[in-house]
Design a protein around this nucleic acid. Structure first.
Lengths: 247, 247
DNA sequence: CGGAATGTTGATATGCCTCAACTAAAGTGG
DNA sequence: CCACTTTAGTTGAGGCATATCAACATTCCG
């Protein structure tokens, strides 16, 4: 996470919302009037924990946030990954208590937006509320796809699908660099996302590598052959509900 | 679904929203002013299909609706089950195209609410919009739990967990009768929800039966020993975000 | 009453998990 | 900057949970 001098968190949020929603000038103005407190997280640091009652929502400015469930025996189940522009817990606006935790994958910088600010903005600009509501609904679509991915696909296509999704979303947000995108997760975490054992992750990843379609390396997903990867994964991006297809 | 003469769909929605949200008189009035078109579905009949662009939202009046993904090879992955009072596709209000289908499990009666009506009501009563937004967020929490259930739990606790959830939600909505609740699914469908093969479903269900904690019989989930069932499932209902605990 | 859908049970196969030993890389303090 | 420790990744052997296949029983429904 190179700390760049000139990151404009507002611009990041505006760009992201525009990927799926139309924003009027007034909506943009309303966004620019929000109070933002940017904070840097170390890899693996929690932003909120299961059981918390946060008073602000998170906006990912750079890096990646992940949501996860903590199981009684201490294991983790990663639920979703959130790139720059995402607001991974706008849900806390309307649901008192966190039912999951949110942590940084690699070094990550996060802006907090006080709930009060957001609610006031919603009142003035319902269309802004609808854009963020839509964002939470797309989130839900991503969860649904994860249910299907982890329940109905075997190890190789399952991993391929997750890679497709992260790469595709990165690309849609202009966060990819050529054939690669940022994904600083360990094989262990990948296993906790996909519901497979570490040793299996390793073997399946090697297998994926050998197909020449994709790879995970130095904290990056590398796409060597998109068509092949997407076919292996049976990846259909329509569930992401983006206005423009980056691939 | 016995067709009863005196079902009031408005009352069902109001009761449901009150399980997690506070409604003012004006919100209730706004709900009662909505246009509802009730329609009966036969078992297995689709209400909307993947790819559709519905112009109305569904409200379950009686029976159960299920959401599912259709995979390229024709298999299904059931994603969630929706009881009376649920609005399983309010998402279509803000997301153009359906990324999944919705079908009836047993005979089911569904009310359609035109999107225009809802949006107009939201404009007059933002708090009503927030209640329904909250509903969609709880939905998302249920999806997250399904990810964890299907990815991190083995067959027996996985099945127990789904039974717990459906029974608990039924009870919260006053839809349970003693120790049982309506759940007219076949073993095949149960397998398609839990990501296990039909034969396995059968064996695991027998096993569950033998623990004396729960059962699925005549289209009903029967809870013989709630504490045992909940323990088997590691069931923690907090993700349902209900104001009052029915158990 | 007959046919289709659903449920039951056994035998066998296999994909993934577990355990374990080891290598490589990354972070840390002297 | 190097030795040391910790964390991450790699690979093999073996076992087990669940899938698959197959035959049959049962219930549902027209």
């Amino acid at each position: 996470m190179q700390r760049e001098a000139a990151i404009d968190p507002y611009a990041i949020l505006i760009r992201k919302l525009k990927e799926h929603s139309r924003l009027q000038k007034e909506d943009v103005a309303e966004i620019r009037a929000l109070t933002l407190m940017v904070r840097d997280l170390a890899p693996n640091e929690d932003f909120v924990r299961q059981g918390d009652r946060p008073k602000a929502s998170a906006l990912v400015v750079s890096g990646i946030l992940a949501r996860y469930h903590l199981l009684p025996d201490g294991r983790r189940q990663y639920l979703s990954f959130h790139l720059a522009g995402d607001m991974p817990d706008s849900q806390a606006l309307f649901v008192d208590q966190m039912d999951h935790s949110v942590c940084a994958l690699g070094p990550t910088s996060v802006a907090s937006i006080p709930h009060g600010d957001l609610m006031a903005a919603f009142e003035r600009r319902p269309s802004l509320a609808f854009a963020i509501w839509r964002e939470t609904l797309i989130d839900a679509a991503i969860f649904r796809e994860a249910i299907t991915n982890n329940s109905a696909r075997s190890a190789l296509p399952r991993m391929a699908h997750l890679f497709c999704e992260i790469y595709y979303r990165s690309r849609a947000s202009g966060l990819s660099t050529g054939d690669a995108c940022h994904a600083p997760m360990t094989l262990g975490q990948l296993g906790e996302a996909l519901g497979m054992a570490l040793a299996t992750v390793n073997r399946v990843l090697s297998e994926l590598r050998e197909t020449g379609s994709g790879d995970l390396k130095n904290g990056q997903i590398v796409v060597r052959d998109w068509d092949r990867l997407a076919e292996l994964a049976q990846f259909d991006p329509s569930y992401l509900h983006l206005k423009r297809q980056p691939l």
